[in-house]
Every structure is written in structure tokens, then in C-alpha cells.
Deep mutational scan, measured.
Amino acid sequence: GKMTGIVKWFNADKGFGFITPDDGSKDVFVHFSAIQNDGYKSLDEGQKVSFTIESGAKGPAAGNVTSL
């Protein structure tokens, strides 16, 4: 299901970062391709987001990332 969290950091040049889930679980990798907006796909440190957990090739990653 949907989770919420805070963006820990995001490197716009490399197109990835990490989200710290509100439930205290392990930080989740986020790739820019998972960001659900029409414009420039980037996130800001400290931004609140909702997301799902998808299993990627390198382990769990955030999917369906939407800013709240």
C-alpha cells in the first residue's frame, strides 16, 4: 500500500536519492523515473512524499512517488 515519508536527499544530476519512511523502516532508494509529475522529475530534501515499495533489481525501491 501507500506509505509516506520525507526525502532524505536527492541528487538531481544523477537522478536518484533516498526517502526516509514515516514508519521508521529502512531508507528507500528512489529513482527519478518513479516520480509522478509532468514536469521536471526531481525531489527536494525534506519534502514530504507518498510512495509504494516496488522490488527492483537492486532491492526495494520507491514507486508512484507523489509530493504531498
Rank of each mutant, 00 (worst) to 15 (best):
D13M: 15
A57I: 12
G56K: 12
N37I: 11
T52I: 12
A61Y: 12
T66E: 13
P21T: 04
G46M: 04
W9N: 07
D23V: 08
G39E: 10
A62S: 02
S33L: 04
V7I: 08
A62G: 03
K58T: 07
I35M: 05
K48M: 12
T20M: 12
G59F: 05
G56D: 09
W9E: 08
A62V: 03
D44R: 14
G15M: 03
T66S: 11
Q47H: 08
S25D: 12
S33H: 05
N37V: 14
Q47I: 05
D44F: 12
P60D: 07
G56E: 07
V28S: 02
I19S: 00
L68Y: 09
S67L: 15
N37F: 13
I53L: 14
N37L: 12
I53R: 11
K58M: 07
G56Y: 07
V65C: 05
T4P: 02
T52H: 07
P60A: 08
I53E: 03
T20F: 03
M3E: 10
I35W: 06
F32I: 12
N37A: 15
G59P: 04
A62C: 06
F51W: 02
G59A: 05
G46Q: 05
S33V: 03
D27G: 04
F29A: 06
K14P: 02
N11I: 04
Y40H: 11
G5L: 00
A57V: 14
S33T: 13
T20L: 11
G46C: 04
L68W: 10
F18Q: 07
W9D: 06
V28Y: 04
H31I: 00
A62W: 02
F16I: 09
S33Q: 06
T4I: 10
M3L: 11
G1F: 08
P60V: 11
K26H: 11
D27S: 04
K48W: 09
K26V: 12
A62Y: 02
G46H: 04
I19H: 00
A61T: 12
Q47T: 10
F51Y: 11
V7D: 01
P21G: 01
N11H: 07
D44L: 13
N37K: 15
K2A: 09
L43V: 06
G63H: 11
T66A: 11
G63K: 14
F29T: 04
P21E: 00
G5Y: 00
S50M: 11
F51H: 02
A12L: 09
F16D: 03
I35K: 03
I53T: 08
K26Q: 14
G1H: 09
K41N: 09
G24F: 04
I35R: 04
A34M: 04
K26Y: 06
S42V: 12
N11R: 15
D13W: 15
I19P: 02
F29K: 08
K8H: 06
K8D: 04
F32M: 11
H31P: 05
V7T: 04
G46R: 05
S67D: 11
A61N: 08
V49D: 00
F29P: 09
T52W: 07
K58N: 10
T4Q: 12
G5A: 01
M3W: 07
Q47N: 06
N11Y: 04
D44M: 11
S50Y: 05
A57T: 10
I53G: 03
K2F: 06
D23S: 09
V28H: 03
K26G: 12
V49F: 00
G39M: 09
I6S: 12
A61L: 12
K48I: 06
E45L: 11
E54W: 10
V65I: 04
T4A: 04
G17N: 00
E45D: 13
L43W: 04
P21W: 00
K14C: 06
K41E: 09
A12N: 14
G63C: 14
D27R: 03
V65T: 02
G56F: 06
S50G: 08
T4M: 08
E45N: 09
G15P: 00
P21Y: 01
D23H: 10
D13I: 13
A61E: 15
M3P: 03
W9C: 13
A34I: 01
G56Q: 10
G1D: 14
M3A: 09
T4W: 04
G39C: 09
E45W: 08
S33P: 04
G63M: 13
D38T: 13
K14L: 09
K58G: 09
T52S: 11
S25M: 06
V49I: 05
F18K: 07
I53W: 10
K14M: 10
P60W: 09
T20R: 15
V7L: 03
G15K: 06
E45Q: 15
S50I: 05
P60L: 12
F10G: 01
D38G: 11
Q36Y: 06
K14S: 07
S25R: 09
G59T: 05
K26W: 04
E45I: 10
D38Y: 10
